[in-house]
């Protein structure tokens, strides 16, 4: 029976980011509890009390310490452990972000807790609460049971509806004194470069590892040129290879876009990539692997080799233009 849940709020990493916890995390907790009365407490580590904003649908524990000025796994791990001692939760919910995947496994290991990462759905089977996540290269889904409590669960950002509902809960403030002997000189660099071409594009033709050779990017560019207000984009690996600039990267660590049409060329469809394009209008995937995960997230699926398919598509388009 799960009736006590603790949510760790996302640390503020960039100046533009809001301080409140993602309402999607609260909605995730509601799904976990179902009909069971449940106490949800959002834990907010911050460096000054004015940083904290109460949220709907949960009580709040504000933890104040100068160590929380910048995110570090050491500070957030300690905050989680102190809060867990106080709240005694069945489940500790942490957003699966760059911060979350850094410290959540540490918290689980130190509490000898169960740990389930990047959960995208909650299901119930014979009174058991099951946590769904993607596995096997995104080709199959896995349903996990907590097995024991407490359990640390990291939740995929954007996987749960973000409407804020419910009343503001109580707010409690505690002061901590955390020592940070192993980590120092934390500096943030905002390297995010805006890319209006990609962010405002109606049509995005995106390429992944499956394009094979850098020269094949020309095919992707030619396909994009068929559409007005279009842009090319790339999955992480193409940017890592230096084939495409990072400002064209789509995914959790790149841009989140929602064009009218998204064509995924040779993209396998990792959850990190899906998070960046799942709100697109129409999604077309071209991949030679019929089992590629991207096909589960596509309206139109084409099992083909790109080197053959794109030229064929260019030819079809040219034929129609002549008419």
């Amino acid at each position: 029976m799960i009736n006590r849940i603790m949510i760790m709020c996302e640390p503020r990493i960039t100046q533009s980011q809001t301080e409140t916890p993602d309402p999607g995390m609260v909605n995730f907790c509601r799904l976990v509890c179902g009909e069971t009365p449940c106490v949800i407490t959002a834990v907010h580590p911050c460096s000054s009390p004015s940083d904290a904003t109460p949220i709907r649908g949960a009580d709040m524990l504000v933890m104040i310490d100068s160590a929380f000025e910048h995110y570090s796994s050491s500070a957030w791990e300690k905050a989680s452990l102190i809060a867990a001692e106080k709240i005694n939760p069945d489940i500790i919910v942490i957003p699966h972000t760059a911060a979350g995947y850094d410290y959540a496994p540490r918290v689980a290991a130190l509490m000898d807790a169960s740990c389930i990462s990047s959960v995208t759905a909650v299901e119930n089977s014979d009174g058991r609460t099951l946590f769904r996540r993607s596995g096997f290269h995104g080709k199959l889904d896995m349903l996990y049971e907590a097995g024991k409590f407490p359990a640390v669960i990291t939740v995929m950002p954007g996987a749960f509806t973000a409407e804020e509902t419910g009343k503001h809960g109580s707010v409690e403030e505690i002061r901590c004194s955390i020592s940070m002997e192993s980590v120092s000189d934390i500096t943030l660099t905002d390297t995010s470069e805006s890319n209006p071409e990609l962010e405002n594009a109606d049509v995005v033709i995106a390429a992944g590892r499956g394009i094979g050779r850098q020269e094949n990017l020309e095919l992707v560019r030619s396909m994009a040129a068929l559409f007005p207000a279009s842009s090319i984009a790339g999955s992480r690996i193409l940017c890592d290879n230096g084939w495409i600039e990072y400002r064209y990267q789509v995914g959790l660590t790149g841009k989140k876009i929602s064009p009218r049409l998204y064509v995924a060329c040779g993209i396998s469809g990792s959850p990190q990539h899906i998070a960046g394009m799942k709100d697109s209008g129409t999604v077309v995937a071209v991949n030679r692997d019929p089992g590629a995960a991207i096909f589960s997230h596509s309206d139109i699926c084409i099992v083909e080799d790109l080197e053959k398919f794109i030229p064929a598509f260019l030819e079809a388009a040219a034929g129609h233009n002549q008419k």
Binding site: I13, P157, V183, D185, L188, T189, S192, R247, T253, K255
Partner: peptide, 11 residues
């Protein structure tokens, strides 16, 4: 690497 193409450094 952090979300949304920002980064941080530390010792």
């Amino acid at each position: 690497e952090l979300d949304g193409a920002s980064a941080c450094s530390m010792t």
